[in-house]
Structure formats: structure tokens, C-alpha cells
Amino acid sequence: MSELYRKWGRSVRREGSRLVRVDEAGEAMENRTTFRTQPIEDMLELEAPDAEAVQAAAREIESIVKPPLILERLFVSEGSIAHECDGVRWSETLRRVHVAIARPPIRALVDLAEFQFDAVKRIASALLRAGGERDAPKRIRLAENVGAALLSSAKIQKTQSAWPHDGKGQQVIERRVENEEPPNWFRPSYRMRPRRAWFHLRAAPFGRIDDAVPEGIALLAPIGERFISVLCIDGNRVFPTTVPIRRIAAARATETWFPYGAGAFGAELMF
């Protein structure tokens, strides 16, 4: 029994100062032992991505990040994608933003799925006021963008949100995330072997987030196994700090979707 997956995509991205347009299609076949991929030259008529929206979004970010801040990395993209897996067809339009804003020696990382930059503005403003590294506050809450990055490994109750299709065209059904093999398949590229994953994670709310405690508003490094490095706002003070990943005392879900793994909704978490 073999499975055939096909994908057609058109994307436009700003990477630094360059605009890159990519049209690509390919197929993946998988049987019990071997996963094979190859390009498809027959293209579907996909709607062209909005290059002007990509350029405008990139320009907006460039206007936010001014010296002494450094826009170290800028990826802004939009893509139109069609999928087919064993006769099931579906399509989607995606937007992605990855920004690294440096104020040496620190760097804030921002990943978004919309061209809305309130978080970028807030982080850039805070970076301008950032002082030296300080010990982690006893209690700290994480902003939705930071909590979303932590969600897949966070030891709290969470649910998989319903979605029309997974990487094999099957429906993603809302259910509680358990310590078991995820029922759905994640396929970030036709060239990559699909893997099981929980989709579109959402934190189950519990406890009470104390809005008065210091807040980690941006990741300063990818999530570690035992620590997260964040930019923290505590009253008038802004500083980088390394927070041990410990028991989460409260969680609140938000409606913003973030492109971490197979997707995660915003999660305000409090340690």
C-alpha cells in the first residue's frame, strides 16, 4: 500500500532586501519502507501571492526597527498552496513573518502568521530601554507569543483545535492532548517525511494570571529544554533574563495563531 501526496505552491517572500518569488510543485510517495519525492512540472493555476502586501509588511517592520536596534533577520512571506493526498484536495493561503531584532548582546525573535506588528512595536520599544541581564523574577508571566512557543512542551492541559485538514488530508478533530501518539500528521514540505503531531494547540485556561507581575514579552533564544531566555518588563525596568521552566501556575489562551510546529494559539502563562 503506498500513499501519494502532491503539493503546488506559489510564494513571495522578502528576505533581507531581496524579493524572492518561488513557484514549485512536487509529489511524495511513501510505502512501508521508502519515502520518495520528485518535482511536478504540471502546475495548477494558483492565485498569485500579494507581493505588494509582502513588501508593505517588510517596509513597516523596517520602519519600526531603527538604530541603535539592528534588523538582523527579516523574512516576510505569503504563499498560495494546493494539496492533494490520496484523492483529497485542499488549499490554503499562508502568511509568515520571522524577525530577529538585535541590540547587542541580545536578540529578540518574533514569529508571526499575520502582517500585524503590534508585538514587534512593543518589543522594539522595550529593547531600546533594555538594561543588563538580571536574575529571573520569582513570578513571571509570559506574553502570548512567548507562551505559544512554549506550549508544545508545557506540562499543562491543552487541546488540539479543529481544522479541516492535516498533512494527509484528514480532518483535525478537537480533542484533549494526551500523552499518546498524536492522531494527525504534520507535513511542512512535500520533501519531508510526514510525522505525527498535535495540531493548533490551545492552552486550557486555569488559575489567575496576575497582570501585576513582571512579563516576558519576547524570546531571546529558541526554547531550551530547561530554560527560556526572555526580554522582561518589570515596571519601568526592561532586562534580559533566563527563566527556569518550572510549574505553571496559570494559563490563559488567546485567539492569535502562531507558526510553531503544527501550530499553536497564543498562550499567556504564569510561572
Binding site: G26, T33, T34, F35, R36, T37, Q38, P39, R191
Partner: peptide, 10 residues
Amino acid sequence: VLEESRINYG
């Protein structure tokens, strides 16, 4: 055992 095989061009 062959587990993955790809051709890619452009």
C-alpha cells in the same frame, strides 16, 4: 535499507 530518495531540480 533505502528509507528516503529524492530528486529535486529548478
